[in-house]
């Protein structure tokens, strides 16, 4: 069973994963154009892309613990998941910029003045070099520095979860759960059990 899953995962070409990952984004915009996202399509697109990006980031953080603690071999999925997560963040950001805020002077004011926007921006900027170096050539070129650079994913995902909490109104459970999940996934990497292996 596990063997089967592992060999299946190995067989999936990366381009298929990227194509599959792009489907929800395209579908969301198609629905937006067709006015099928309810009375406020901009809000719907913005929130869903942000949420899905966080899911992908969390999924990316799960890969390495699974690799270390189970016989499942999913490591090959980590790069596509990470790159897709960044693409989702980018489209989320562009939707906010172009369709929501619209006014250029307002955009800069929001980034500087509003903590939830600032935190989201920092998270995105931390992910940018990671997305750009998610290729074999960069890994070879950067050598041991590549690992150091990609450590940035941890602060980035924590900031993404905080970004979600900061934009919520009232005391809401869902964003708290995501932050706890992220902190557990980052924290587990510092436990002796994890480091020993």
């Amino acid at each position: 069973m596990i063997q089967q899953i592992n060999s299946r995962v190995r067989q999936i070409p990366n381009w298929a994963l990227y194509l599959l990952g792009a489907v929800p984004v395209v579908w969301l915009y198609v629905q937006g154009f067709q006015n099928a996202l309810g009375p406020d399509p901009v809000d719907a697109i913005e929130h869903r892309l942000g949420l899905w990006a966080l899911w992908l980031l969390i999924a990316g953080l799960c890969i390495s613990p699974i690799q270390r603690n189970t016989p499942l071999r999913l490591l090959k999925l980590r790069r596509p998941i990470g790159v897709l997560a960044f693409m989702y963040v980018l489209v989320h950001f562009l939707t906010w910029l172009v369709l929501d805020v619209q006014i250029p002077s307002q955009i800069w004011a929001d980034i500087v003045k509003r903590p939830y926007v600032t935190v989201g921006m920092v998270a995105m900027l931390l992910l940018l070099p990671l997305a750009l170096t998610s290729n074999d050539w960069s890994i070879r070129k950067l050598g041991s520095k590549w690992r150091q650079l990609h450590w940035l994913v941890y602060p980035a995902v924590i900031l993404a979860a905080i970004h979600m909490i900061l934009q919520a109104k009232g005391f809401q459970l869902e964003p708290m759960i995501y932050l706890v999940v992220v902190l557990v996934l980052v924290g587990v990497r510092r436990t002796p059990l994890y480091l020993r292996r």
Binding site: F33, N35, P41, I45, D100, Q102, Q106
Partner: peptide, 20 residues
């Protein structure tokens, strides 16, 4: 509002490209 500007608004029902 501390988290967003109140200078403009998005009119609901204007679709994807409704201007503020």
């Amino acid at each position: 509002h501390p988290r967003w500007s109140q200078a403009t608004e998005r009119r609901i029902g204007g679709g994807l490209f409704a201007r503020r």
